[in-house]
C-alpha cells in the first residue's frame, strides 16, 4: 500500500504524518491524531456525524482521504472551545438542551459553525435547510434549532 507524507493544520496546529493512501480523514484524525471528538455514524456520507471544516467548508471526513487534506486548514469539534472555555455556540447548545446522546453532536456543531459564518442571523427555515444533511436520532431537532437561534442572538423563539 502506497503511503504519502501529509502536512496540514488541525485546530491551528501544524501536523505532519505518513499515511496510507486509503486512510480516511476521519480515521487519520481519530486514530493518528487522537482527536476522537469527530464521530463516525455511517461511513457513507449521509449522517453527517463526521463533519469537520476543511478550509472553512464543511466536509464529510468519512468520505475524504487524509491525503486530500494536504496543506488544508482542518477544524474539528475539539477546536471550538478556547482556553478551556466553551464558545458561544457550545454555550447556546448547553442552555438549549440541544443534544441528548451526543454522538451526532460534533457534526452538527461544525455544520452550524459554517452556517453562522455564512449567515450570522439565519431564519429557522435557513437553519433547518442547512442542517438537513445531519441526522440526529434523539432530539427531533427542535432543541438543536433553538440552540442555533440562541447562538445567533435571536430571542423571540423562546416562550
Amino acid at each position: 500500500m502506497t503511503s504519502f507524507d501529509v502536512e496540514l493544520t488541525v485546530n491551528g496546529l501544524a501536523r505532519r504524518a505518513t499515511v496510507e493512501a486509503r486512510r480516511t480523514l476521519a480515521d487519520f484524525l481519530r486514530e493518528d491524531l487522537g482527536l476522537t471528538g469527530t464521530h463516525l455514524g455511517c461511513e457513507h456520507g449521509v449522517c453527517g456525524a463526521c463533519t469537520v471544516l476543511v478550509d472553512g467548508e464543511p466536509a464529510r471526513s468519512c468520505l475524504m482521504l487524509a491525503v486530500q487534506a494536504r496543506g488544508a486548514d482542518v477544524r474539528t469539534v475539539e477546536g471550538l472551545a478556547a482556553g478551556g472555555k466553551m464558545n458561544r455556540l457550545q454555550e447556546a447548545m448547553w442552555d438549549s438542551h440541544g443534544f441528548q446522546c451526543g454522538f451526532c453532536t460534533p457534526g452538527f456543531l461544525m455544520q452550524i459553525t459554517a452556517l453562522l459564518a455564512d449567515i450570522p442571523e439565519p431564519s429557522e427555515a435557513e437553519i433547518r435547510e442547512a442542517l438537513s444533511g445531519n441526522i440526529c436520532r434523539c432530539t427531533g431537532y427542535e432543541s438543536i434549532v433553538n440552540g442555533v437561534l440562541r447562538a445567533a442572538g435571536a430571542t423571540g423563539f423562546l416562550e
Binding site: R30, L35, T36, G37, T38, H39, L40, T76, V77, E78, L80, A81, M86, Q90, M93, W94, D95, H97, G98, F99, G102, F103, T105, P106, L109
Partner: peptide, 20 residues
C-alpha cells in the same frame, strides 16, 4: 430545566464512546 452535567464533555468532543 437544569443544564445537563453531560453537556460540557459532549459539546467539546471529550465524551468517551466505545470507539474512542
Amino acid at each position: 430545566s437544569v443544564r445537563r452535567s453531560e453537556d460540557p464533555r459532549i459539546l467539546t468532543g471529550s465524551g468517551r464512546y466505545v470507539d474512542d
